[in-house]
Design a binder for these strands. Structure first.
Lengths: 222, 222
DNA sequence: ATGGACGAAATTGTCAACAATATCGTTGTC
DNA sequence: GACAACGATATTGTTGACAATTTCGTCCAT
């Protein structure tokens, strides 16, 4: 599933960008780490122009930082910047939840119900890692099902730098339970057609997610 | 103020991207128009690598479309895509209005009041063009003053493809009046510290903006 | 040992030439 | 006149070599 190996044919700039993004998400490229062109060339088999193109693209997305004659490095986010990202997520994903309630078709609703059942299982089995993955799918399903590609695109960009953090919280079992309860409540609101309720719930849910995260970070740094 | 002439020293990729963006905003590059590398080189004095870098960057922002061996052209938005953009704006700028109410300092509030006074004058003098410019400043002040740079950044990207549309509506005098009334009402809510009220008002205001636009487009195309 | 000066190596930035492809006008045929 | 085949031109894609700058190790004086 997750393509992580070098690519056989000559990769396009977009593919290299994807490759780097993935490695940032999975934590193989950590914040501050320098991204040396030759290394990427060796690992992907791409030409230098393509690598440089990809790095420029990633700079545009705010994922890497490029200094003149020093090259690219993975940008690190302060806690305050993470807070700002979460605030943007609250706005956009809240809107997505609203529009999902209005627009989602029957098949998508079924998929959401099925996903919810799987998430419930994870809670019972105390499987935070699997919960994290399914949780991501759950959120993505809402966003894609809202029918707003612009919002989906911006949310995807917002999520990359915090991707790893999205899993952190679920090792706290209390948080895992409340998060799942949030999802169940949202599902009920969605099925009832209460778009504004779903939006409020989504915003609250994401806001709580950040609060948990901030608490963890505080403990970590104190 | 608006720098439109070629640049003297060798421009950076970012500067060329800005240059192209500006020309798209001001309508000198219209949707569908092809952006030939040599032309941009001639007009900016930049090297080809830089121009190509800039175009790739703009592609990443969704502003231009690049086809293999056919080059870059200005992307055109369908009415539905504009609707999606407005929906994203409602979410993000609504959140910005909320946070502005909580975070804005006294100096910024004064600037907002001054701007509002200028806008009132424009309504009296029936100056839709000036109103459009000041209106943009008004919205930007709210966003910048909210203290959330992430949201500010995403909003700026959202606005570029619809920049010209933002002026269209104000040639309808009715719209100009209601828009200004909206601003006044929002200012009152902000000064009263009613963050949630300000957010609701902002969302309503932007939603109405799109409705007006959609009506104009409908008339235009029928 | 510490710190500075120097130079080699590593890394990024720039440019120009060439290859691949698309575009457009011309010609010839029906 | 319509249309296909063809070639000339224009345009974009790719590569490699070279320049500019930083980085890092070495040597030397204190």
């Amino acid at each position: 599933m997750a393509q992580d190996a070098p690519i056989d044919r000559a990769p396009t700039g977009q593919e290299i960008a994807d490759w780097v993004r993935q490695r940032i998400r999975t934590g193989r490229f950590v914040p501050g780490q320098r991204l040396v062109e030759v290394d990427i060339i060796r690992q992907t088999g791409a030409s230098r122009s393509k690598v440089r193109e990809a790095l420029k693209r990633l700079e545009g997305e705010g994922l890497v930082e490029i200094e003149e004659f020093r090259g690219a490095s993975v940008r690190s986010s302060t806690l305050d910047e993470v807070r700002q990202i979460y605030r943007a997520r609250m706005a956009l994903e809240g809107m997505a939840a609203h529009d999902f309630t209005v627009n989602a078709d029957a098949a998508t609703l079924e998929r959401l119900k099925a996903l919810q059942a799987q998430l419930d299982t994870c809670v019972h089995e105390r499987a935070p890692d699997r919960f994290g993955r399914l949780n991501n799918e759950w959120h993505r399903l809402i966003v894609e099902g809202s029918g707003n590609k612009v919002i989906a695109d911006h949310l995807q960009r917002l999520n990359v730098p915090i991707h790893r953090l999205l899993f952190e919280s679920f090792y706290d079992e209390e948080r895992l339970k409340t998060a799942n309860a949030d999802h169940q409540a949202m599902l009920t609101l969605i099925l009832a057609g209460d778009a504004e309720g779903a939006e409020r719930a989504m915003r609250q849910h994401i806001g709580d997610g950040f609060d948990t995260l901030a608490r963890i970070e505080d403990e970590f740094y104190s």
